[in-house]
Design a protein around this nucleic acid. Structure first.
Lengths: 345, 345
DNA sequence: CCTAGGTATGGCATCGTTGTCATACAGTGG
DNA sequence: CCACTGTATGACAACGATGCCATACCTAGG
């Protein structure tokens, strides 16, 4: 009998069976004692609990969820964790997940379609209780829904109607932002945008267009510039439009990367802000409050977005057959120094 | 017999048994066919594979890992996802995890000790293959190591020697940064710091002190200011030291939040940078390259830190009994406009 | 005294996989 | 013709937890 092991680090992790043996009762009783369901004599319970933490017993979550056929973990799929927006979103989800007793599996698909689908499969494999996703295509939701896994789309919608969604009112706030520029006296307002295929882009574009139309400003398609996905491209595109003979007096950047490009372009060209050029941004970023003048921006509360998505998901898990709903959160305009009346021509 | 269900959404997720039945073979054969281990006739394999994707079969990762007694998921515990440093770290880990076939459970402990321990327990419950943590105390590592779970500490070390760690050489780069200020002619250099209890703080402090000593500059403890954990506190502390009669000509902020406080304080006091005051920061933040002048900063590659930590963890999982090592990554000094020679007195 | 109901406990099947083992049928070399 | 080896398959027992069921005791009420 040389089975003496140091007491501090047991050779194997303790299981329910070990606790049962140590307490001198059956596994059934042990399970009941630790879960608090069913009859257990007080004395037995005490012995069992004592044995459990003597052995450092931690229930095996996977075994439990295999047996109970329910999972306490949710999958989260975002496009790019290095982008503050997604990181804040994840933070909001994480906070709610923890307080509701769920664990979070986080995957960053880097904006790649194949990784998005691959991640979805990983969520199915772990039998996630539900998934929150900032989708790149309708495929994820379709696939997960077919697998009977609740899905919530955040930030943008691809499967409108088929699954729940939590978004902000892009169109409305883009319109109000454009209204603000028009109220200051601007007539030539450029829109720098990445894409108009997703709901985010198309709605922002729609809000901008709507504002101009409502103010009776003639449509000028040349002022809407597709500026790519990175700062470099945005900078180039901004330089292009700002050096035109009929350059705009204000630029509306449809996200924070584009705003950075515009800011740098203005600096390249020696334009004074807001005297020579007004700049506004959809998405607030930290630098916008650090530079002078600060950049007037639309702030989405990404943390709140994440929290709302998690709440939605948990409701859905409780009631899988309820009708899909779309939750729309408010976004705020933060007026800063980058906007003023255009210079008289 | 009214068990007709729509073919598109099966009532229950398909299991190995379902695939086996559909292909007309046993579970054993099915398992062998899908895993590729052991003998399976070519014809049978084809039938099985066909049945599997007909049914949309996805193997149950938890059942598998229960049976095989190995897990393919790692736990990651960071202090605050909303802080870019941690988000980038997580992104680095996530990237490596995905490419190595692991899934990542992410928890944000919000800098709270009890949540840190709670998260550690959750990792044990899911039988994580390993854990990467930016620790708040030695307790996490101690607990997890006792539970035989490999741990890698990142950014700061609490359990030096007991577990692996991946950090940057805080002391050395802090010293070089201070040397840089001294080389420019500064003699009164303040250090704004949050804490000196963690390895990060104490090493940065040590590097600063060492640089001054090596240059023969007399020690002045009043120039080392404990500035709290948020921007507001840092701003106040900075205003305090900058309005002293013998105010420093340069300030070294030990992290990006403190740097923001200093920057705002300088703005409050109308100090011109770098003429009236030189500012340097440990930690680069996006705004530091957007403001003018830009802030000279120490850039840690948080993504690389995360990748290195994941690599370390996987090595450790493969060889649990190897000696614990500490990996030290380089950090870079990015010279920008916020530093110059002090104004002649 | 007998039964009913509350309390307390253990046995056992089960969740979905995997791997060991036993079995069976080739074909091959002695 | 008899081992023997290689191929192919299915039964079955795990992994760790739970929950149904049977069993057993005790007390109270008829």
């Amino acid at each position: 009998m040389e089975e003496t092991f140091p007491r501090s680090t047991p050779p194997r992790r303790a299981t329910l069976k070990d606790v049962a043996r140590a307490a001198g009762v059956s596994q059934s009783t042990t399970s009941r004692a630790l879960s608090g369901e069913g009859y257990v004599a007080a004395a037995a319970r005490d012995r069992i609990v004592a044995a459990a933490d003597e052995l450092g017993y931690v229930p095996h979550a996977m075994a439990r969820s295999l047996r109970k056929q329910v999972s306490r973990s949710v999958g989260v799929l975002v496009s790019d964790l290095r982008n503050t927006f997604y990181a804040d979103l994840a933070a909001g989800i994480a906070g709610r997940a923890r307080s509701r007793g769920y664990t979070m599996m986080l995957v960053d698909d880097q904006g790649l379609l194949d990784q998005e689908l691959h991640a979805a499969q990983a969520f199915v494999a772990t039998r996630a209780a539900g998934v929150i996703v900032t989708p790149l295509s309708a495929d994820v939701s379709t696939y997960l829904l077919r697998q009977r896994i609740p899905v919530v789309e955040v930030d943008r919608r691809f499967s409108a109607g088929a699954c729940d969604a939590v978004v902000i009112d892009n169109a409305s706030v883009a319109r109000r932002m454009t209204d603000h520029l028009i109220a200051l006296g601007h007539r030539r307002i450029a829109l720098l945008i990445d894409e108009t295929d997703w709901t985010t882009g198309s709605e922002r574009f729609a809000g901008y267009t709507r504002s101009l139309a409502d103010s009776g400003i003639p449509d000028d398609p040349s002022l809407v510039v597709s500026a790519g996905w990175d700062v470099g491209g945005a900078r180039k595109a901004a330089v292009g439009i700002l050096t035109r003979r009929d350059a705009p007096t204000a630029v509306f950047a449809a996200n924070n990367l584009l705003a950075e490009g515009v800011w740098r372009a203005a600096s390249d060209l020696g334009l004074r802000i807001p005297d020579d050029l007004s700049i506004v941004s959809f998405d607030d970023a930290q630098w916008m409050s650090m530079v002078s003048p600060g950049v007037t921006a639309i702030a989405q509360d990404a943390v709140a977005l994440g929290e709302a998505a998690m709440d939605r998901l948990l409701d859905r898990i409780e009631d899988p057959d309820a009708a899909a709903t779309t939750t729309v959160l408010e976004a705020q305009i933060l007026p800063r120094g980058s906007t003023s009346a255009p210079r008289p021509a």
